[in-house]
C-alpha cells in the first residue's frame, strides 16, 4: 500500500513538484469552474483555453520555452479575446457565445500557425498538453501566486459574484460593482488557465477546472459547499492521476483529467441532486408536501 500510494511522492522530487503544482492549481481553478458552470459559461472556459495559445506561442517563438514570456503572452492573448468577445457582445447585436466562438477560433488558428512557423511538433504538444512532471521552481511559484490571488479575489468579491450570477439587475440597482466584477471574473479565468497550461497544457487545464465543478453540482445545493467539494474532487483527481501515470507509465495531464472525468460520470449517475439514478428510481413512498 505504501509502495503504491506514498513512496512515489517520497522518493522522487519531480513527483513532489507535480503534486504541489497540481494541488495549487486545483485549489484555485475548481472554485472558478463552479462559477463558470453556474453562469452557464462552461464552454467559455474551453474557448478561453484555446484563446491563450497564440500568446503563449508568441512568447515561445521569441524567447523559447521560458515561463515568464509564455505566461505574459498567454495573459495578453486571453485578455484580448475576453475583452474583444465581451465588447462585440455589448456593442453589437451578436450574443456572447457567438462572439466568443469567433474570437477563440481566430486566436487558436493564429496560435497553431505561429507554433508551426518555427519549432517542431514536440514543442506544440508541450504547449497544448503541458508536462506536470517537469515543473521548475519558477512555475511552482507562479502557480502559488495565482492560487493566492484567486482565493483572495473570491473571498473579497464573493457576495458580488453570487449576486451577479443570481440577479444581475438587482445588483446593478444597489451597487456599481456588477460590470467590474464580471470582468474581474473573466480575468481570474484567464489567470487560472494560463497557470494551468504549464502544468496540464491549455487543453487539459480547463478539464481540471470544469469537471470537478460539474461533478460537485450533483451533490449539493449551496455554492460554498459546491466550491469546497469541487476542490476536494480536484485534489483527489490530481493524486489519482499522478499515481496512475507513475505506475502505468501514462501521460500525467490526461490521467489527471480522466480521473476527474470518472468522478463526474459517477456523480452524474449516483449524485443526490438531479442525478440519473435518483431521478429514475421510483420511491414507494412520497411525502405529502
Amino acid at each position: 500500500m505504501y509502495d503504491l500510494l506514498i513512496s512515489p511522492f517520497v522518493e522522487f522530487g519531480f513527483m513532489q513538484r507535480a503534486l504541489a503544482g497540481s494541488l495549487l492549481l486545483a485549489v484555485a481553478a475548481c472554485p472558478i469552474g463552479v462559477f463558470l458552470m453556474l453562469r452557464r459559461m462552461s464552454l467559455a472556459g474551453d474557448a478561453m483555453a484555446h484563446a491563450i495559445l497564440p500568446g503563449a506561442a508568441a512568447g515561445f517563438l521569441l524567447f523559447g520555452l521560458e515561463l515568464v514570456p509564455m505566461t505574459i503572452g498567454g495573459l495578453i492573448a486571453g485578455a484580448v479575446v475576453a475583452v474583444g468577445a465581451g465588447a462585440v457582445a455589448r456593442f453589437t447585436a451578436q450574443k456572447e457565445d457567438a462572439s466568443m466562438a469567433a474570437f477563440y477560433l481566430i486566436s487558436l488558428a493564429l496560435g497553431v500557425m505561429m507554433v508551426s512557423l518555427r519549432g517542431s511538433s514536440v514543442d506544440l504538444l508541450h504547449i497544448l498538453f503541458g508536462s506536470v512532471l517537469s515543473l521548475d521552481d519558477a512555475a511552482l511559484s507562479l502557480l502559488a501566486g495565482i492560487a493566492v490571488v484567486t482565493l483572495a479575489c473570491l473571498f473579497v468579491f464573493w457576495r458580488a459574484l453570487v449576486a451577479e450570477c443570481l440577479d444581475p439587475l438587482f445588483l446593478r440597482s444597489v451597487s456599481r460593482l456588477g460590470p467590474p466584477v464580471h470582468f474581474l471574473f473573466l480575468g481570474l479565468v484567464v489567470l487560472n488557465l494560463v497557470g494551468g497550461f504549464q502544468a496540464l497544457g491549455t487543453l487539459l487545464s480547463v478539464g481540471l477546472m470544469m469537471l470537478p465543478a460539474a461533478a460537485a453540482r450533483f451533490w449539493t445545493g449551496r455554492v460554498v459547499t459546491m466550491c469546497g467539494l469541487a476542490v476536494a474532487i480536484g485534489i483527489a483527481a490530481c493524486l489519482s492521476g499522478l499515481l496512475v501515470s507513475y505506475h502505468a507509465g501514462l501521460p500525467s495531464g490526461p490521467a489527471i483529467v480522466l480521473s476527474a472525468g470518472v468522478v463526474y460520470l459517477a456523480s452524474a449517475l449516483l449524485g443526490t441532486r438531479g442525478a440519473l439514478v435518483a431521478r429514475f428510481a421510483r420511491p414507494h413512498r412520497h411525502r405529502t408536501a
Binding site: 453556474l38 453570487v162 450570477c165 443570481l166 440577479d167 444581475p168 439587475l169 438587482f170 440597482s173 453540482r217 449539493t220 445545493g221 449551496r222 455554492v223 459546491m226
Partner: peptide, 15 residues
C-alpha cells in the same frame, strides 16, 4: 427595485 422574475436565475443553488 424588483426585476421581472424572468431576469433571475432560479436554478442557482442558493437558499
Amino acid at each position: 427595485y424588483l426585476p421581472q422574475q424572468s431576469e433571475l436565475d432560479r436554478s442557482f443553488p442558493v437558499r
